[in-house]
Amino acid sequence: MERLEVLKTYKIYIGGQFPRTESGRYYMPVNKAGKALGNICLSSRKDVRNAVSAARKAFGGWSERTAFNRGQILYRIAEMLEGRRSQFIEELILQGSTKKAAEEEVNLAIDRIVYYAGWCDKYQAIVSSVNPVASSHFNFSVAEPMGVVGVVAPENSSLIGLVSLVLPAICGGNTVVVLAAEHLPLCAVTFAEVVNSSDVPGGVINILTGSNKEMNPTLSTHMDVNALVYGGNDSAALKELQENAVLNVKRVFAYSNNWAKADAQGLHFVSDLQEIKTTWHPIENIGGATSSY
């Protein structure tokens, strides 16, 4: 007799834990062939709230990690994902990819994580500056993470879209609350499991599944979210996010790249989510001693 398969329960990921949605609700997305993908959590407003709280709590610690340490942790995500490539490939195929496309997507996702792991301790040197002010002051500008970033993952991508938006955000020291692709949610949940097993502190990445229409307003009006990244292509949804962002002057970034392309990555995805902070300090200039003695 053939062995009975143990089915996976897909949960959401908040503060390093895998709860079911507090609402107890679920939805059942189907693939093109009409096959149900599973019982997926239909997250509620309260789940969004909990995820933002978790992200805020994690922000201080994550942003103060050394850049080197963040780089190591991001690289660890790639390692762990590599070890579970077959599961992602299966899920992608189940969600409608060809085998070849699925393999390519997973490969690219791993490579992209490695790419952003490498940026962790390099972007600062490129985006910061020492500014030659016309007075006796030392003046420098550095990049600092914006804080809690809400990420609305692209609708048409299960893995690579999410990775492409989440990694640059956490590379720069932000923490994220991700709304996974509503109809392609499987890889998002498995990605959460990878994250959870790879030294990323709880709360740095929080992933919710469910209805964007339901969650977007909560996320975009939340007063403790500092920035939003929108990866979708629905201009009405974007407008709604932008309007809601006004409440606390959130920064909103919309990207419509084709994430499956090898060059859909770059420094600006990191630096867009950075604030520039400028510090001044007087320079005491005593007597006639100069550096050209």
């Binding site: 500014n131 007075s135 002051h137 500008s141 914006m146 920064r251 604030e275 902070k277 400028t278 001044w280």
Partner: peptide, 30 residues
């Protein structure tokens, strides 16, 4: 967005100026 250490209200064209949170976004200068 701007920290003045042992000084205050200094401005310069080369020095980026602008805020975090509800003080706005984008920088001017530099």
């Amino acid at each position: 967005g701007v920290i003045w250490a042992n000084t205050y209200n200094k401005f310069d064209p080369t020095s980026p100026f602008g805020g975090y949170k509800e003080s706005g976004f984008g920088r001017e200068g530099g």
